[in-house]
Write a protein that binds this DNA or RNA. Structure first.
Lengths: 146, 146
DNA sequence: CTCACCGTCCCCACTTTTCCCCACTTTGTG
DNA sequence: CACAAAGTGGGGAAAAGTGGGGACGGTGAG
């Protein structure tokens, strides 16, 4: 279980420290790829395995083909240095719009990496906003047909 | 079962004492996160487990992605020091508007942490208000569709 | 084929934060 | 009134995060 938001520096070599709390839960075989809303996502092996359902074949619909290409094409296995940092490739930094700072966020089963603006926009919430969204999801769950 | 309201100090390091009565009911694995109306909430493990259904994957709808990010991003596993205190992160203190004092409130299955103003506003009630709200809830239960 | 350049990774040193420990104050209880 | 339990405050060691130098290997140009 990954919890919490951490603001970390990204140095000139593209390195970001993964919080120690997360690192100790990440076995080798962890994968980093692109995610929705312009973030990067770290998948522990067991979570990555769930995404294996997404495959190319003669009967795969166009949308899934596209998703599979983006997701797997952008993916890489994570390599930690002795300080617990991973390197974000130029490509990944560009996709996420990351320059000197990154927000590393634990989202239950995954870890996400965001730039300043996007995280402020998506992740931070005023009490009013938070209350509204919580109620919205609760409502939807109660009446899933809508 | 958590009952009662306690007014505790928050020191310069962001630490708050959890009342001893509550602490003895809290096993390891207790989680603190943001709650509705600008409070913080402490979930004992069995309560937190209910929230685990919310996961990220390539098929998670947008609203749930948003809620998951806010909720888990703001959460932390509680770590008690030898004096029975937990640390509220700067982020959590800002969300709840907590500076030097916090109200720690037992609300049956959860524990909530409030700042002065909000708690006065939400928690204290005149007899008239109390009656009105009780009737309102009773009404809704009778006709859940509204 | 050789050399220069670039990117990657490994290592070391410094800074900042966290958390562990101790001591004091206050509250509640016998 | 005295003792015990609960809450408060702060100092210091250890861990986590940050930044940069330099070796190694691969690539492309001359």
């Amino acid at each position: 279980m990954f919890l919490g938001t951490y603001r970390h520096a990204v140095d000139s070599k593209g390195r970001v420290a993964v919080p120690a709390r997360f690192r100790e839960q990440l076995p080798t075989g962890t994968v980093i790829s692109k995610g929705a809303e312009g973030c990067l996502q770290l998948y522990p092996p067991q979570e990555w395995a769930r995404e294996q359902g997404l495959r190319l074949g003669s009967t795969t619909p166009a949308e899934e083909r596209r998703l599979a290409r983006m997701m797997f094409g952008a993916a890489r296995e994570c390599e930690f240095d002795a300080q617990g940092r991973i390197v974000l490739s130029a490509d990944q930094r560009q996709y996420a719009g990351i320059a000197n700072v990154a927000w590393v966020v634990g989202v239950n089963n995954l870890i996400e990496i965001w730039n300043d603006d996007n995280w402020r926009h998506i992740g931070e919430a005023t009490p009013e906003e938070y209350t509204r969204i919580q109620d919205q999801v609760a409502e939807r769950r109660r009446a899933p047909s809508t």
